[in-house]
């Protein structure tokens, strides 16, 4: 009898529940990658996730471990409350879309990153509000048509898309900031490595992985064409890159680090 090598098996950290996502939606890929990492690191009983508001609001149905569901944009604040109270060996991650994280939740994500909260943030960027029916997001590309930018995103009216990795990379505290893509197998393999790195570095500080994703329904494209559209349109605007790793820091952040403090505190002694 021939022996078999497992090339791919459905991860144990996923429940049996069927995903409710549209056909071809890359949320499922992102979920699976996280579950694979949880399996590989053996942390199923040491991890608590935070689900957002958006299509992945029900993410807690699909992961076989504890979850807290956050209000729209507030996942980093909820995760902060968890990080500061749960035992130190726990892993905590938020899973947030672009509307949730980069629009209504901008304050929470920036300040959680700035405090160096020891969490992993998985940021799903598909340049659109999927759940509410395809409205303009803070990451919608210039000229891109959505249900609330029917003539294409007009940058004179509503500015340019926000690049979250680049923005957070101006801060001193984050330990890991990277952008990957779920648009083809080689990028997915790389994305998993980024996620794994983030989870492994989590107990050292704030870690952030942006994943370029699709919304075939919101974009009005087939799943296959969505992947092509992502690569042709999103990637030039959102370059795939590791922005921050331990030991690296851009000049803008370095200027204020490390350990720059006031020379003496204000109290007369």
């Amino acid at each position: 009898m021939a022996e078999e090598q497992v090339i791919f098996k459905r991860p144990a950290a996923l429940t049996e529940k069927y995903f409710h996502y549209c056909p071809g939606c890359t949320h499922g890929i992102a979920h699976r990658l996280i579950a694979e990492i949880v399996d590989e690191m053996g942390i199923q009983e040491k991890i608590v996730g935070v689900s957002p508001v958006g299509c992945s609001v029900l993410a807690y149905n699909y992961f076989d471990f504890d979850f807290q569901e956050a209000a729209h944009g507030r996942a980093p604040a909820v995760a902060t409350g968890m990080r500061r109270t749960l035992p130190e060996d726990r892993y905590i991650f938020t899973y947030q879309g672009d509307g949730d994280l980069a629009s209504i939740g901008m304050a929470e994500i920036v300040h959680a990153a700035n405090r160096g909260e020891k969490i992993t943030v998985v940021f799903i960027n598909n340049a659109i509000y999927g759940m509410t029916g395809g409205q303009m997001a803070p990451t919608t590309l210039p000229g891109m048509r959505t249900t609330t930018s029917p003539y294409g995103r007009d940058t004179t009216l509503c500015g340019h898309p926000i690049r979250m990795c680049e923005l957070l990379n101006t801060l001193v505290e984050p330990r890991f900031i990277a952008r990957g893509s779920l648009s083809q197998a080689k990028h997915i393999i790389k994305a998993k490595k980024l996620l794994r790195q983030a989870f492994e570095l989590q107990h050292e500080g704030f870690t952030f992985v942006e994943l370029l994703s699709t919304c075939p329904t919101g974009w009005g494209l087939t799943p296959e064409n969505s992947l092509l559209w992502l690569e042709r349109n999103m990637m030039p605007f959102f370059p795939l890159q590791v922005f921050r790793e331990p030991g690296t820091m851009p000049e803008t952040a370095k200027k204020y680090a490390p350990d720059l403090k006031v020379k003496d505190d204000k109290k007369e002694s």
Binding site: G81, T85, A107, E108
Partner: peptide, 17 residues
């Protein structure tokens, strides 16, 4: 917290823990 909005949601996370 960075705002009262965040503070109450930190309470949520801590309360849930």
């Amino acid at each position: 917290a960075e705002s009262e909005v965040s503070a109450i949601n930190m309470l949520y996370g801590a309360g849930g823990s």
